[in-house]
């Protein structure tokens, strides 16, 4: 890591970019050192998709009609499962408190952690989805839209899920509660994400769906960090 003048970091507002990048880099490094944690959501995604042809029927035309919804729901659940670990390790070893003590605004530091989470969960899920789309015989021509909608949508999912993760990080068994809190808030993203893929399958215009997904991401980027910061303060100060 680059050497940074400590005096610059301590000034309020000073070294914001340096601190933000350092937090992001630290998060990515820690995650990449525990490879299985990065792989687990992807394996879960593939497994859930495998279950559906077994549970419903291995008919290509039937699977093709429900594929957009299945892929989106499975990816959403995979994101949700990885959400609980977002602040957990930092909470346990106390580095979350250090993050709160640093002079840079907590909301932005939390945003760096969410960005790290998205880069190693949401983005890989989005890139892997076309592969599973082939398994479900999703019509060709909709793969790009599937990846794009998942990439944009999962960023909103990470931001909203981080609020729930921050609220439940102080609890011993927060996992199930986290899904109860966060799943209702995921519904709009799911609706427009599947909407985009279905529009692509039907051959109609996908731009409106993607535009709304982008708008939701913009709103989440603007509002969620404050809620995450407030929730972290509640969880840590007790």
């Amino acid at each position: 890591m680059r050497e940074v003048d400590l005096a610059v970091l301590r000034e309020p507002g000073g070294g914001l970019v340096v601190a933000w990048m350092a937090t992001l880099r630290r998060d990515l490094m820690l995650r990449l050192r525990r490879r299985s944690e990065v792989m687990n959501p992807l394996v879960f995604f593939a497994l859930v998709i495998t279950l559906f042809p077994l549970g419903i029927a291995p008919k290509a035309d039937l699977l093709a009609t429900i594929a957009p919804g299945l892929l989106w729901v499975a990816a959403l659940l995979a994101t949700l499962l990885s959400m609980d670990s977002l602040f957990r390790a930092d909470f346990d070893d106390g580095s979350l408190e250090q993050l709160m003590l640093c002079p840079q605004p907590l909301a932005l530091m939390a945003l760096a952690k969410v960005a790290g989470h998205w880069l190693l969960t949401g983005l890989p899920l989005a890139l892997m989805a076309p592969l599973l789309g082939i398994l479900l015989s999703l019509p060709t021509g909709s793969y790009g839209v599937l990846s794009l909608s998942l990439a944009v949508g999962s960023a909103s999912l990470s931001l909203v899920g981080a609020i729930g993760a921050a609220l439940t990080v102080g609890l011993v068994r927060g996992g199930v509660l986290l899904s109860l809190l966060v799943l209702p808030l995921y519904i709009p993203v799911l609706i427009f994400g599947t909407g985009a893929v279905q529009a692509a399958v039907a051959g109609s215009d996908v731009a409106p769906h993607l535009a709304i997904l982008g708008a939701m991401l913009a709103a989440a980027l603007m509002l969620a960090p404050w809620a995450i910061a407030a929730s972290l303060r509640i969880s840590i100060n007790g």
């Binding site: 609220l167 809190l181 209702p184 808030l185 709009p188 509002l223 809620a227 509640i234 969880s235």
Partner: peptide, 24 residues
């Protein structure tokens, strides 16, 4: 802490209700 956490969630929820309603 429970009170404050529930309050934050209520505010997050009330912002989301119109979005959920219109998207549904």
């Amino acid at each position: 802490s429970g009170s404050r956490a529930a309050s934050v969630l209520a505010i997050v929820g009330v912002i989301n209700i119109p979005i959920i309603k219109y998207s549904v």
